[in-house]
């Protein structure tokens, strides 16, 4: 395997993969390829980009402690999804991902989000939607990590971000719904899918806000305490 030595280059790749490569790949899938192949081109792009992210993470020097914390938070959010599985759209995953991201860092947020999707789908069923869930939760975590400072300071900002994340999650998953239908991407279909998903979108947003307000402070305190005590 090639190891990238230049720190700046590595940093650029880490930012470029999720933010640049994704849209480019998806755009290529939509505009260049004919036929009804969008769905699979998108899935392949998603897997490809996430593999790149994982590969770049593998090359990075990460403290063992931080790695274990990521595993702990992933396990907690998987349990959270299982505990609330009876109530549709009311899940603490997104909020746990956001909390991890703002206290531990953007990449940890991405990992907790995407790995939670993989693991909990062992229980809820793997399918072509798994990469989309991985991407949606991963990106919510990544962005939350970059916005860490304001989100740590203000509970209002945290709640607003949680609500937006719920909407974003719904919008990303509806791209999948539209592509799945096989007609290719059309804005009308997308709007229709978003329309039918409104109850779910509201459910995601509300549950994120509720869980962030309830869990945000105690979780944050605990993570901060561990950080202080052990210097993660």
């Amino acid at each position: 395997m090639i190891r990238i030595k230049n720190e700046n280059l590595r940093k650029t790749i880490r930012v470029a993969v999720p933010f640049l490569l994704f849209p480019l790949a998806v755009a290529a899938g939509v505009f260049v390829f004919p036929d009804n192949s969008y769905a699979w081109i998108t899935v392949v792009c998603l897997i490809f980009a996430m593999l790149l992210f994982y590969a770049s993470f593998d090359k990075k020097v990460v403290g063992t402690r931080r790695m274990v914390i990521i595993a702990v938070m992933t396990a907690l959010s998987v349990i959270g999804r299982a505990v609330f599985s009876m109530i549709p759209a009311f899940k603490p995953i997104t909020s746990i991902v956001i909390i991890t991201a703002i206290w531990i860092g953007p990449e940890s947020g991405f990992l907790v989000g995407s790995l939670t999707a993989v693991i909990s789908n062992f229980q809820f069923g793997q399918g072509p939607w798994t990469p989309f869930q991985m991407f949606a939760w991963g990106m919510i975590g990544l962005v939350a990590g970059y916005l860490g400072k304001p989100l740590r300071k203000s509970r209002v900002a945290l709640a607003v971000y949680g609500a937006l994340a719920g909407v974003a999650y719904s919008m990303i998953m509806d791209i999948w719904t539209v592509l799945w239908y096989g007609e290719g991407f059309s804005w009308q279909l997308y709007a229709a899918a978003l329309g039918t998903a409104i109850p779910y979108t509201i459910g995601y947003a509300v549950s994120n806000v509720v869980f962030l307000l309830v869990l945000g402070r105690p979780f944050g305190e605990k993570l901060q305490r561990v950080k202080l005590k052990y210097g993660v």
Binding site: D58, M67, T74, L115
Partner: peptide
């Protein structure tokens, strides 16, 4: 990525 597999 062995590291990701370990976390998983």
């Amino acid at each position: 990525s062995p590291k990701i597999a370990l976390i998983l």
